[in-house]
Amino acid sequence: TETRTFTDEREARRFEQEARDNGKDVQVRESNGKFEVRVK
């Protein structure tokens, strides 16, 4: 599991989409204006 934290939602979404395109299981959590993207 890899976790990346972004402050920019667009960057978080781009990373999320890229991971999904690669067939990964992705979860995005938002807290305090930060976006935590977990990739399995």
Results as ranks from 00 to 15, higher is better:
residue 33 G to C: 00
residue 34 K to F: 13
residue 20 R to P: 01
residue 30 E to L: 11
residue 30 E to D: 06
residue 20 R to H: 05
residue 1 T to P: 08
residue 15 F to A: 05
residue 30 E to Q: 11
residue 12 A to N: 01
residue 11 E to V: 05
residue 39 V to N: 02
residue 14 R to Q: 12
residue 37 V to S: 00
residue 28 V to W: 13
residue 26 V to P: 05
residue 20 R to T: 05
residue 34 K to R: 12
residue 37 V to G: 00
residue 39 V to M: 05
residue 2 E to I: 14
residue 31 S to K: 13
residue 30 E to F: 15
residue 24 K to N: 09
residue 40 K to M: 13
residue 2 E to H: 11
residue 9 E to K: 06
residue 16 E to P: 00
residue 7 T to H: 09
residue 24 K to R: 10
residue 17 Q to T: 07
residue 33 G to A: 02
residue 12 A to L: 04
residue 14 R to S: 08
residue 23 G to F: 05
residue 7 T to V: 10
residue 28 V to T: 07
residue 2 E to P: 06
residue 2 E to M: 11
residue 19 A to N: 08
residue 10 R to G: 13
residue 38 R to A: 12
residue 8 D to H: 05
residue 2 E to V: 13
residue 7 T to P: 05
residue 4 R to D: 02
residue 35 F to K: 01
residue 21 D to S: 12
residue 8 D to Q: 04
residue 15 F to M: 04
residue 8 D to K: 03
residue 15 F to D: 02
residue 10 R to H: 11
residue 28 V to Y: 11
residue 37 V to T: 00
residue 34 K to G: 08
residue 39 V to A: 05
residue 6 F to Q: 02
residue 35 F to I: 09
residue 36 E to N: 03
residue 10 R to S: 13
residue 11 E to S: 07
residue 36 E to K: 03
residue 18 E to V: 08
residue 33 G to V: 00
residue 7 T to Y: 12
residue 13 R to K: 09
residue 15 F to W: 09
residue 29 R to F: 15
residue 14 R to C: 02
residue 7 T to L: 10
residue 1 T to L: 11
residue 22 N to Y: 08
residue 17 Q to V: 06
residue 15 F to H: 04
residue 26 V to Q: 01
residue 27 Q to P: 00
residue 21 D to P: 00
residue 38 R to E: 14
residue 8 D to C: 15
residue 22 N to W: 08
residue 16 E to W: 09
residue 4 R to W: 15
residue 38 R to D: 11
residue 7 T to C: 11
residue 13 R to D: 03
residue 20 R to I: 10
residue 6 F to I: 00
residue 34 K to P: 01
residue 33 G to Y: 01
residue 38 R to G: 06
residue 6 F to M: 00
residue 6 F to W: 03
residue 16 E to H: 02
residue 31 S to N: 12
residue 25 D to N: 09
residue 13 R to N: 05
residue 10 R to I: 11
residue 35 F to V: 04
residue 31 S to V: 15
residue 39 V to P: 02
residue 19 A to S: 09
residue 25 D to G: 05
residue 23 G to C: 07
residue 24 K to L: 14
residue 5 T to H: 10
residue 4 R to L: 10
residue 19 A to D: 01
residue 35 F to M: 02
residue 32 N to H: 08
residue 33 G to W: 00
residue 16 E to M: 13
residue 38 R to T: 15
residue 30 E to G: 06
residue 9 E to T: 02
residue 35 F to L: 04
residue 6 F to P: 01
residue 28 V to L: 11
residue 22 N to A: 15
residue 11 E to K: 05
residue 31 S to E: 12
residue 12 A to P: 00
residue 8 D to Y: 04
residue 16 E to D: 01
residue 10 R to L: 13
residue 24 K to D: 06
residue 27 Q to V: 13
residue 32 N to K: 06
residue 17 Q to W: 06
residue 10 R to A: 14
residue 3 T to R: 06
residue 26 V to A: 06
residue 36 E to A: 03
residue 2 E to G: 06
residue 36 E to S: 04
residue 21 D to V: 09
residue 32 N to P: 04
residue 37 V to C: 05
residue 19 A to E: 08
residue 22 N to R: 13
residue 38 R to P: 02
residue 24 K to E: 05
residue 1 T to F: 14
residue 4 R to P: 03
residue 13 R to P: 01
residue 19 A to G: 04
residue 31 S to P: 02
residue 32 N to Q: 08
residue 14 R to G: 05
residue 9 E to F: 06
residue 19 A to K: 05
residue 8 D to G: 03
residue 27 Q to D: 11
residue 35 F to S: 01
residue 10 R to Q: 13
residue 24 K to F: 15
residue 37 V to I: 08
residue 23 G to D: 04
residue 18 E to K: 08
residue 22 N to P: 02
residue 39 V to T: 08
residue 3 T to H: 09
residue 23 G to I: 01
residue 14 R to K: 12
residue 4 R to G: 03
residue 26 V to H: 00
residue 28 V to I: 11
residue 5 T to S: 08
residue 15 F to R: 02
residue 12 A to I: 00
residue 25 D to W: 14
residue 30 E to T: 08
residue 3 T to N: 07
residue 7 T to F: 11
residue 36 E to R: 03
residue 30 E to M: 12
residue 40 K to P: 06
residue 34 K to M: 14
residue 9 E to V: 09
residue 27 Q to G: 04
residue 10 R to W: 13
residue 5 T to N: 06
residue 30 E to N: 07
residue 23 G to S: 03
residue 13 R to F: 06
